[in-house]
Computed example of a mutant assay.
Amino acid sequence: MQKHPVRIGSVELEDFPLLLAPMEDVSDPPFRAVCKEQGADLVYTEFIPADGLIRHADKAVQKLDIYDYERPIGVQIFGSEIESMREAARIVEAAQPEILDINYGCPVKKVACKGAGAGLLKDIDKMQHITAEIVKQVQLPVTVKTRLGWDEQSIRIVEVALRLQEAGIKALTIHGRTRVQMYKGEANWEPIAQVKQHPDIEIPIFGNGDIDSPQKALEYRQKYGVDGIMIGRAAIGYPWIFREIKHYFKTGELLPPPSLEERLRVCLKHLRFAVEWKGERKAVFEMRRHYTNYFKGFSHFKHFRTRLVEAGSLAEVEDILAEIEHFYTHEQAPFENSPS
């Protein structure tokens, strides 16, 4: 494969970068830290409501926290009104990320049905206008994440890509589903390839959707010709997906799964940083979605998983993780049997 850097405005990434998707209540600084450690080339914040930034809402402002080790980083915003999006863009620029990303893909009802996120796929003129205004407002490179269309009958992603490029964006990530699909069914990358192959497209095109293994990452890289891949759900509780894909690209070989010691180390690092960043109660609660994948494939894990999900304090989780270490070190080989 020919190697060449991917450029997003002034940001230079390595050949075929792997991006961490912006995921609500997931892509926070603690999670970004472990994904960066495991090879993510570009990470994005959780998506931030423009209205929340303008009102200086604590939850929205906290999402602007950026740490030097996670650079380059993109801050993602969403909204439906030009003025509020323009003002939010000014606030984001002051936080000094490398990239400002606009969310035109969120499918959840409270966002899309209020004319933001994927809702703007119903009004491409407005989408282009908002984008152009934000590009004028900031010096940062502006990127967009979107979906194929609102539904199967309204897929106009090639037109959307061309118009967003005309508005001045420096890269585009496309999730291979419509808004109506939500996260169901299989992601369709054929329209993403059509965008990438269009002779007038000059910006990097990143694909997103269903990449959950090194084999699939390589297959989609070769089949659809995108400039890089954005990974979302497959990274939750399993940041090693980034290093595994990179190793497979370079060698054609699959890395062995991370050891028990490494899983415990990374899980604890993630948890303790989360407690420090967002407080113990919220951190312990939100870590629940990660535990299954942190110990993916471990035999006889159901009992521990139930206890981890029910745990209410950092000390309680730490005690359970110590029990897990003892159990799989002295009593049970982690991968001896099929996952429970």
Rank of each mutant, 00 (worst) to 15 (best):
V11E: 00
F273R: 14
D101F: 08
N188D: 15
V317C: 05
E186W: 14
G207V: 06
A116R: 03
R305G: 11
F304N: 06
I324K: 09
K145G: 06
E87R: 07
E190Q: 11
R289M: 09
I245T: 07
K250I: 06
H247T: 05
T146Q: 08
F285P: 00
K122D: 08
G312V: 05
Y224F: 14
T178M: 10
I155W: 03
Y248P: 05
R177G: 06
G117T: 06
S80F: 08
Q137V: 01
T329F: 05
E219S: 10
R71A: 00
H198P: 04
E83D: 13
I8K: 01
E331Q: 13
E14V: 08
P239Y: 04
G52C: 11
I130P: 00
S84Q: 06
P339A: 14
G52I: 03
H56P: 00
P97M: 07
A112H: 00
A315K: 15
C113R: 14
D51L: 12
V144H: 09
A187T: 13
F206C: 15
T329R: 15
S313A: 12
K122A: 12
I201M: 13
G9Q: 14
P97G: 11
K136A: 13
A132S: 15
Q137N: 04
Q38C: 12
E24K: 12
A116P: 03
H300R: 15
D227A: 13
A171D: 02
R289I: 11
A57N: 15
F47L: 11
V61P: 04
D210P: 10
R305S: 13
F301H: 03
K269T: 11
Y224E: 04
L100K: 03
E70M: 08
P30L: 00
D65H: 13
G168A: 12
R163M: 05
I73G: 00
A235N: 10
G115P: 08
S338Y: 11
K246W: 06
S259T: 15
Q62W: 13
V75E: 01
A60S: 15
F249P: 05
G168D: 12
E253F: 07
V11H: 00
A57S: 15
I54W: 02
H303N: 14
L308Q: 01
E37S: 13
S213G: 12
E46Y: 01
I211H: 10
W240I: 07
I82L: 06
Q96G: 03
I231T: 03
K296E: 14
M127Y: 01
T143A: 09
N208T: 13
K136S: 13
H198V: 06
E14N: 12
Y44C: 03
R265N: 10
V180P: 02
Y328R: 13
A95K: 07
H330W: 10
G149T: 05
H129S: 03
V266F: 07
P107L: 09
P72F: 05
